[in-house]
Computed example of a mutant assay.
Amino acid sequence: MNSNSAVSSDTIQTAQSLRNLYFLRTAFSAIWIILLSSSLKSSPQLANILFIIYPLWDVLATFLDIKANPRQATKTPQYVNIVIGVLTTIGVALALQISIPAALIVFGIWAIVAGLIQLILGLSRRRQLGGQWAMILSGGQSMLAGTAFILLAHSPTMGINSLIGYSAFGAFYFLITAIRLTVTVRMAKLVA
Protein backbone atom coordinates (compact mmCIF):
# COMPACT_ATOMS: atom_id res chain seq x y z
CA MET A 1 0.00 0.00 0.00
CA ASN A 2 1.53 3.33 -0.99
CA SER A 3 1.37 6.42 1.20
CA ASN A 4 -1.37 8.00 -0.94
CA SER A 5 -3.59 4.97 -0.31
CA ALA A 6 -2.83 5.12 3.40
CA VAL A 7 -3.71 8.81 3.56
CA SER A 8 -6.87 8.15 1.58
CA SER A 9 -7.78 5.26 3.90
CA ASP A 10 -7.25 7.44 6.99
CA THR A 11 -9.29 10.21 5.41
CA ILE A 12 -12.13 7.83 4.60
CA GLN A 13 -12.14 6.32 8.08
CA THR A 14 -12.00 9.73 9.82
CA ALA A 15 -14.69 11.20 7.56
CA GLN A 16 -16.99 8.19 8.11
CA SER A 17 -16.56 8.30 11.88
CA LEU A 18 -17.11 12.04 12.09
CA ARG A 19 -20.09 11.82 9.72
CA ASN A 20 -21.73 9.23 11.98
CA LEU A 21 -20.97 11.31 15.06
CA TYR A 22 -22.42 14.44 13.46
CA PHE A 23 -25.63 12.60 12.53
CA LEU A 24 -25.82 11.41 16.16
CA ARG A 25 -25.26 14.96 17.43
CA THR A 26 -28.03 16.20 15.13
CA ALA A 27 -30.46 13.58 16.48
CA PHE A 28 -29.51 14.35 20.11
CA SER A 29 -30.08 18.08 19.58
CA ALA A 30 -33.48 17.48 17.96
CA ILE A 31 -34.61 15.30 20.88
CA TRP A 32 -33.16 17.76 23.42
CA ILE A 33 -35.01 20.67 21.79
CA ILE A 34 -38.33 18.79 21.83
CA LEU A 35 -37.91 17.74 25.46
CA LEU A 36 -36.81 21.19 26.64
CA SER A 37 -39.58 22.97 24.74
CA SER A 38 -42.24 20.68 26.17
CA SER A 39 -40.90 20.75 29.74
CA LEU A 40 -40.25 24.46 30.27
CA LYS A 41 -43.67 25.18 31.75
CA SER A 42 -44.87 21.70 32.69
CA SER A 43 -41.75 20.40 34.43
CA PRO A 44 -39.09 22.91 35.46
CA GLN A 45 -37.12 20.09 37.14
CA LEU A 46 -36.83 18.23 33.83
CA ALA A 47 -35.83 21.48 32.11
CA ASN A 48 -33.05 21.93 34.69
CA ILE A 49 -31.84 18.36 34.13
CA LEU A 50 -31.81 18.96 30.37
CA PHE A 51 -29.88 22.18 30.96
CA ILE A 52 -27.22 20.17 32.83
CA ILE A 53 -27.23 17.31 30.30
CA TYR A 54 -26.37 19.52 27.32
CA PRO A 55 -22.72 20.27 28.23
CA LEU A 56 -22.34 16.73 29.59
CA TRP A 57 -23.46 15.35 26.22
CA ASP A 58 -20.87 17.57 24.56
CA VAL A 59 -18.20 15.92 26.73
CA LEU A 60 -19.27 12.48 25.52
CA ALA A 61 -19.47 13.67 21.90
CA THR A 62 -15.99 15.17 22.17
CA PHE A 63 -14.67 11.87 23.49
CA LEU A 64 -16.22 10.18 20.42
CA ASP A 65 -14.63 12.87 18.25
CA ILE A 66 -11.21 11.99 19.69
CA LYS A 67 -11.81 8.31 18.88
CA ALA A 68 -12.76 9.24 15.30
CA ASN A 69 -9.44 10.92 14.56
CA PRO A 70 -6.25 9.22 13.42
CA ARG A 71 -3.69 8.50 16.14
CA GLN A 72 -1.24 11.03 14.75
CA ALA A 73 -3.77 13.90 14.76
CA THR A 74 -3.40 16.40 17.59
CA LYS A 75 -6.23 16.11 20.07
CA THR A 76 -5.31 18.92 22.42
CA PRO A 77 -8.35 21.08 21.51
CA GLN A 78 -10.68 18.14 22.20
CA TYR A 79 -9.07 17.38 25.57
CA VAL A 80 -9.38 21.05 26.53
CA ASN A 81 -13.02 20.92 25.44
CA ILE A 82 -13.64 17.85 27.63
CA VAL A 83 -12.21 19.57 30.71
CA ILE A 84 -14.21 22.72 30.00
CA GLY A 85 -17.37 20.66 29.40
CA VAL A 86 -17.02 18.79 32.70
CA LEU A 87 -16.43 22.06 34.56
CA THR A 88 -19.41 23.61 32.78
CA THR A 89 -21.67 20.69 33.68
CA ILE A 90 -20.71 21.10 37.33
CA GLY A 91 -20.97 24.88 37.04
CA VAL A 92 -24.44 24.79 35.50
CA ALA A 93 -25.65 22.33 38.16
CA LEU A 94 -24.33 24.58 40.94
CA ALA A 95 -25.56 27.78 39.27
CA LEU A 96 -29.08 26.37 38.94
CA GLN A 97 -29.12 26.18 42.74
CA ILE A 98 -28.71 29.97 42.71
CA SER A 99 -30.81 31.05 39.72
CA ILE A 100 -31.54 30.57 36.02
CA PRO A 101 -29.61 33.78 35.16
CA ALA A 102 -26.50 32.40 36.92
CA ALA A 103 -26.81 29.15 34.94
CA LEU A 104 -27.24 31.07 31.70
CA ILE A 105 -24.06 33.02 32.39
CA VAL A 106 -22.10 29.80 33.00
CA PHE A 107 -23.61 28.30 29.86
CA GLY A 108 -22.74 31.45 27.90
CA ILE A 109 -19.10 31.35 28.95
CA TRP A 110 -18.96 27.69 27.91
CA ALA A 111 -20.58 28.44 24.53
CA ILE A 112 -17.94 31.09 23.84
CA VAL A 113 -15.01 28.82 24.71
CA ALA A 114 -16.49 25.71 23.04
CA GLY A 115 -17.24 27.78 19.94
CA LEU A 116 -13.64 28.94 19.76
CA ILE A 117 -12.45 25.33 20.01
CA GLN A 118 -14.90 24.25 17.30
CA LEU A 119 -13.68 27.09 15.09
CA ILE A 120 -10.07 25.97 15.56
CA LEU A 121 -10.96 22.32 14.81
CA GLY A 122 -12.94 23.29 11.70
CA LEU A 123 -10.05 25.34 10.38
CA SER A 124 -7.52 22.57 11.04
CA ARG A 125 -9.72 19.83 9.51
CA ARG A 126 -10.65 21.64 6.34
CA ARG A 127 -7.37 20.67 4.64
CA GLN A 128 -7.81 16.95 5.25
CA LEU A 129 -11.58 16.56 5.09
CA GLY A 130 -12.89 19.62 3.27
CA GLY A 131 -16.42 20.88 3.80
CA GLN A 132 -15.77 22.28 7.26
CA TRP A 133 -17.31 25.67 6.53
CA ALA A 134 -20.44 24.75 8.52
CA MET A 135 -18.33 23.81 11.57
CA ILE A 136 -16.35 27.03 11.21
CA LEU A 137 -19.58 29.06 11.04
CA SER A 138 -21.03 27.07 13.93
CA GLY A 139 -17.99 27.83 16.08
CA GLY A 140 -18.27 31.53 15.34
CA GLN A 141 -22.01 31.51 15.96
CA SER A 142 -21.52 29.65 19.24
CA MET A 143 -19.23 32.42 20.41
CA LEU A 144 -21.85 35.03 19.50
CA ALA A 145 -24.63 32.97 21.12
CA GLY A 146 -22.59 32.63 24.31
CA THR A 147 -22.32 36.40 24.45
CA ALA A 148 -26.10 36.64 23.94
CA PHE A 149 -26.75 34.16 26.78
CA ILE A 150 -24.73 36.33 29.12
CA LEU A 151 -26.50 39.50 27.97
CA LEU A 152 -29.95 37.85 28.16
CA ALA A 153 -29.29 36.08 31.46
CA HIS A 154 -31.45 38.50 33.44
CA SER A 155 -34.35 37.84 31.09
CA PRO A 156 -34.49 34.07 31.72
CA THR A 157 -37.39 33.38 29.34
CA MET A 158 -35.49 34.93 26.45
CA GLY A 159 -32.29 33.23 27.59
CA ILE A 160 -33.88 29.78 27.72
CA ASN A 161 -35.51 30.32 24.33
CA SER A 162 -32.08 31.29 23.02
CA LEU A 163 -30.78 27.91 24.20
CA ILE A 164 -33.35 26.21 21.99
CA GLY A 165 -32.27 28.29 19.01
CA TYR A 166 -28.61 27.64 19.82
CA SER A 167 -29.17 23.90 19.83
CA ALA A 168 -31.26 24.06 16.64
CA PHE A 169 -28.55 25.93 14.75
CA GLY A 170 -25.93 23.54 16.09
CA ALA A 171 -27.99 20.58 14.86
CA PHE A 172 -28.33 22.22 11.45
CA TYR A 173 -24.58 22.77 11.16
CA PHE A 174 -23.80 19.22 12.26
CA LEU A 175 -26.29 17.89 9.71
CA ILE A 176 -24.77 19.97 6.89
CA THR A 177 -21.26 18.83 7.82
CA ALA A 178 -22.37 15.18 8.05
CA ILE A 179 -23.84 15.42 4.55
CA ARG A 180 -20.68 17.10 3.27
CA LEU A 181 -18.54 14.37 4.86
CA THR A 182 -20.65 11.80 3.02
CA VAL A 183 -19.49 13.46 -0.21
CA THR A 184 -15.88 13.42 1.05
CA VAL A 185 -16.14 9.69 1.75
CA ARG A 186 -17.56 8.97 -1.71
CA MET A 187 -14.90 11.07 -3.44
CA ALA A 188 -12.09 9.51 -1.41
CA LYS A 189 -13.33 6.01 -2.24
CA LEU A 190 -13.31 6.86 -5.95
CA VAL A 191 -9.71 8.08 -5.71
CA ALA A 192 -8.52 5.17 -3.53
Results as ranks from 00 to 15, higher is better:
51 F>E: 01
106 V>R: 01
173 Y>T: 15
192 A>P: 05
70 P>G: 04
152 L>K: 04
19 R>M: 08
69 N>V: 05
48 N>L: 03
138 S>Q: 14
57 W>M: 11
111 A>W: 03
68 A>L: 08
136 I>W: 07
86 V>S: 01
24 L>Y: 03
92 V>M: 10
190 L>T: 07
86 V>K: 01
180 R>S: 09
149 F>L: 14
80 V>H: 01
63 F>W: 09
50 L>I: 04
110 W>P: 02
78 Q>Y: 10
91 G>E: 05
29 S>Y: 09
187 M>H: 13
123 L>F: 09
106 V>A: 11
108 G>Y: 02
87 L>A: 14
20 N>W: 06
109 I>M: 12
77 P>C: 06
62 T>P: 00
151 L>C: 05
78 Q>E: 11
35 L>S: 09
13 Q>D: 01
173 Y>F: 09
17 S>G: 08
112 I>T: 12
57 W>H: 12
25 R>F: 05
153 A>Q: 10
3 S>W: 05
70 P>T: 12
33 I>N: 01
87 L>V: 14
73 A>R: 02
107 F>W: 11
20 N>Q: 06
106 V>T: 07
121 L>E: 12
144 L>P: 06
6 A>Q: 10
43 S>A: 13
27 A>Q: 04
65 D>T: 03
166 Y>R: 02
127 R>T: 08
134 A>G: 10
9 S>Y: 00
85 G>M: 05
67 K>W: 03
59 V>Y: 05
183 V>A: 08
185 V>G: 02
188 A>L: 07
80 V>P: 02
41 K>T: 13
161 N>F: 15
35 L>H: 01
82 I>N: 05
80 V>A: 08
160 I>E: 07
69 N>Q: 13
129 L>G: 01
183 V>N: 08
99 S>G: 06
54 Y>H: 08
115 G>M: 09
